[in-house]
């Protein structure tokens, strides 16, 4: 197992409209609770992504994406290449919209806007999108989802699944603090459907 995990976020000052960056905070804390060091790095897309253990591409406005892709026209190709080489990645909402067709060949059409909490195969999160593609899908080691915000905080099993699958830490190491946090996450998932 590695003892220093590099977590990178692509352009988090613009692709963090709903707090998606919090997912990296969740990973780094859950690693620390299992005595594994990690770091969160803000990336502009020019970096060698293979140097990173996990890449987050959060949700941003259309205008933010346009500016980003105008300045980094190779970004989506780099992300696809990263995933095809089994890199661990999480793409949220508009980022998933862009990567799903490139990675899976599935077209993402637009329809009526959905703005509500959803339970997708046991994973609870908020969707605020017109996207008609899959709400949560894995492609190799990449999680592509419409569920935005702190998804890994709300769904600690998913966070630990990412940690376990990538062999970053032994997630069976529990503590009273982890139990307390995960109890709050359970309450959060329950409250989501009481609005």
């Amino acid at each position: 197992m590695s003892n220093s995990i590099r977590l990178g976020a692509i352009s988090p000052s613009h692709l963090n409209l709903n707090g998606d960056l919090g997912n990296l905070l969740v990973l780094t804390k859950r690693l620390a609770w299992r005595n594994v060091r990690s770091s969160i790095e803000h990336l502009d897309g020019s970096e060698d992504l293979s140097q990173f253990d996990f890449i987050l591409v959060g949700h941003g406005s259309s205008a933010a994406w346009k500016q980003l892709l105008d300045s980094r026209s190779d970004l989506l190709n780099k992300l696809v290449e990263f995933v095809e080489r089994d890199g661990a990645l999480m793409a949220v909402a508009s980022a998933a919209d862009k990567l799903i067709p490139l990675l899976t060949g599935v077209e993402v059409s637009r329809g009526a806007r959905v703005s509500e909490f959803m339970n997708v195969d046991g994973v609870v999160g908020y969707k605020n999108s017109e996207s008609q593609g899959p709400d949560l899908v894995w492609h190799k080691n990449a999680l592509l989802t419409q569920l935005h915000g702190p998804l890994l905080a709300k769904n600690p099993l998913l966070a630990d699944q990412i940690i376990q699958n990538n062999e970053w830490a032994d997630v069976s190491l529990e503590s009273s603090y982890v139990t307390e946090i995960d109890e709050l996450a359970m309450q959060s998932r329950k409250i989501a459907f009481e609005h």
Partner: peptide, 14 residues
């Protein structure tokens, strides 16, 4: 508050 769990989560993770 109604969203106490989400508020507590974000504070504790921070």
């Amino acid at each position: 508050g109604f969203n106490y769990a989400d508020a507590a989560l974000v504070l504790k993770y921070n």
